[in-house]
Amino acid sequence: MGNADRNESDVIFILLGFSDYPDLQIPLFLLFLVIYIITVVGNLGMIMIIRINPKLHTPMYFFLSHLSFLDFCYSTTITPKLLQILVVEDRSISFPPCVTQYCFVVICVVAEGFLLTVMAYDRFVAICNPLLYIIVMSQKRCIMMMTGVYTWGIISTIIFVYSLVARSFAGTNIINNFFCEYSAVISVSISDNYVTETIFFILANFNTFFTLIIVLTSYLFIFITILKMNSASGRYKAFSTCASHLTGVSIFFGTILFLYCMPSSKSSWLLVRISTVFYTVVIPMLNPLIYSLRNKDVKETIRKLMQLPVGLFNG
């Protein structure tokens, strides 16, 4: 029987999850359930708010709605399975669902990295070239940018997934994580993983550092422009519009750099699992909060929807 046939029919992965901490299974289940509910409500709510408020039909919120969509998608790809393995004894997953889960995660994570880069460019144009903003960030160009973001996410996924399905595995494999994370799956492969890991390392670093260079360059010009402003209120307003995005970028790229671009970080599988929880479960919950708490238009829309007093959102 060929390797491909065996992969599809015989290979089983056992997701270790957090089973080495039996006393924490129920508390972790409740914690992740609450986080997932907040994630779903927060991200779908953000998309709805942006759609129903005409004041939010701008490039910045167009990109933010896609960020919420991506956060919802990869949280939904991972968290339900995590919740399942915390409360059931059967932690197994066959090869096709494992690859499918990994495929969706990679598309979302790579696309989110490039989307954060596009959002940095949007802030650069808005602050450094405000008179040209409407022309440069036209609806057509925004759609083209998002098409490029999703296209590169799919291309990267094809490369990553091919390097995974080309591996050989034994019948039953213990995955030292709570989902089919690349390094955990590759670690149980019986093939020579040098070429595969090299391809992954190069592409992961390219995606991360290419996007980071654009983000840092954009913000370098933004800060130079802000420092040249004569008005203190103008500087504050410019900084405040960038604060949320900078917070999201720092959390997302900091976690990715630690997890995938520093080989030494894999010396502890507990650290890998904690880092993976952070960027797949926690960050999708944080993003709607980060981008809404300091945004008057979003808070005003929420207040109108809930018909609550203005004072509840102030302070």
Results as ranks from 00 to 15, higher is better:
residue 128 C to Q: 07
residue 135 I to A: 12
residue 140 K to N: 06
residue 119 M to K: 02
residue 149 V to G: 02
residue 129 N to L: 11
residue 144 M to S: 13
residue 131 L to V: 07
residue 149 V to N: 03
residue 144 M to A: 13
residue 148 G to Y: 01
residue 139 Q to G: 14
residue 151 T to G: 10
residue 138 S to G: 14
residue 153 G to K: 07
residue 144 M to T: 08
residue 135 I to Q: 13
residue 123 R to D: 08
residue 138 S to W: 11
residue 129 N to M: 13
residue 124 F to P: 06
residue 137 M to D: 09
residue 130 P to T: 12
residue 126 A to K: 01
residue 120 A to K: 10
residue 144 M to F: 05
residue 141 R to S: 01
residue 148 G to K: 01
residue 123 R to V: 14
residue 131 L to T: 09
residue 131 L to G: 05
residue 147 T to W: 00
residue 119 M to G: 04
residue 147 T to N: 02
residue 121 Y to P: 03
residue 142 C to G: 05
residue 133 Y to T: 06
residue 153 G to I: 05
residue 132 L to A: 15
residue 137 M to K: 07
residue 133 Y to N: 10
residue 144 M to D: 09
residue 137 M to A: 10
residue 127 I to H: 02
residue 133 Y to M: 13
residue 120 A to F: 04
residue 125 V to A: 03
residue 135 I to P: 06
residue 139 Q to M: 07
residue 120 A to L: 04
residue 149 V to M: 12
residue 149 V to E: 03
residue 126 A to G: 03
residue 125 V to Q: 08
residue 148 G to C: 08
residue 149 V to F: 05
residue 138 S to K: 12
residue 143 I to D: 04
residue 133 Y to L: 08
residue 149 V to R: 01
residue 149 V to P: 02
residue 122 D to R: 10
residue 128 C to D: 10
residue 132 L to W: 13
residue 126 A to C: 05
residue 131 L to S: 11
residue 140 K to F: 04
residue 126 A to M: 05
residue 129 N to Q: 15
residue 151 T to D: 05
residue 148 G to S: 05
residue 138 S to H: 11
residue 152 W to Y: 12
residue 144 M to P: 05
residue 150 Y to I: 15
residue 125 V to K: 08
residue 120 A to D: 03
